[in-house]
Amino acid sequence: MGGSNKPELIKDGKRLDGRTPDMLRDIKIEVGVVKNAVGSAYIEWGNNKIIAGVYGPKEALPKHVQDPERAIIKCRYAMSPFSSLEEHGRSGPNRRSIEISKVTKEVFENVILLDRFPGAEIDLFVDVLQADGGTRAAGITAASVALAASGIPMTDIPYAVSVGKVGDMLILDLNKIEDNYSDADMPVAIGPRTGDIMLLQMDGNLSRDEIKKGMEMVKKSGEYISKLQKDALKLSYERILEKYK
């Protein structure tokens, strides 16, 4: 937040990468990029490149973590050591990635019908290969698709995106440099079927009214993100159909 040598993030109503305040970066989603996984998805969201993969449901191990009434989700969000423009990152979990893994897991605990698989675990891996701001949102969006592709029963396909603020202006989908120097950042995940907020984090400064408006921006862009998710899933099934024609 803030920081020194703050670049001018908005000039003549345009952002550094030419976007208007409520414009998403380009998003591409591909299903089935990891053959071994039960379900997988690759997302390119601006310069973010992220793979999400699902294994299970399978017997939860070690046995003491089993829940006799429902499946548990094990989620690991991780950034590759070469993912950022800065120096070589350290591999292995850090405090940031542990928190993101936790909030990501909680999004999917909301939508997966966990009680169908007592004693089981569902493994969800979100690997950030290249990062440019908004990786948790992009990761959740990809993980939703991977889970849907795995056939694990879910009540919804959540999407996520962040909204932030530069000066007095709310901006959608912050990239890395905007994230570094913005006055607020609020990643949100929504279940489009109900409109429920499944992930909500925020830091910086936002008024009650700005948060309300930010939520509207999220939901508006969500219609498009949801469509991309569903299109990617559809395409993967069409490809299978092609094969057996």
Partner: peptide, 24 residues
Amino acid sequence: NVVRAMQKGLSGAFSTRELDNLMG
């Protein structure tokens, strides 16, 4: 004057209306 940080936890969800009320 303003909200400085937020964090939702656990598997449940909030509606946008609930969020607005809770800010109040």
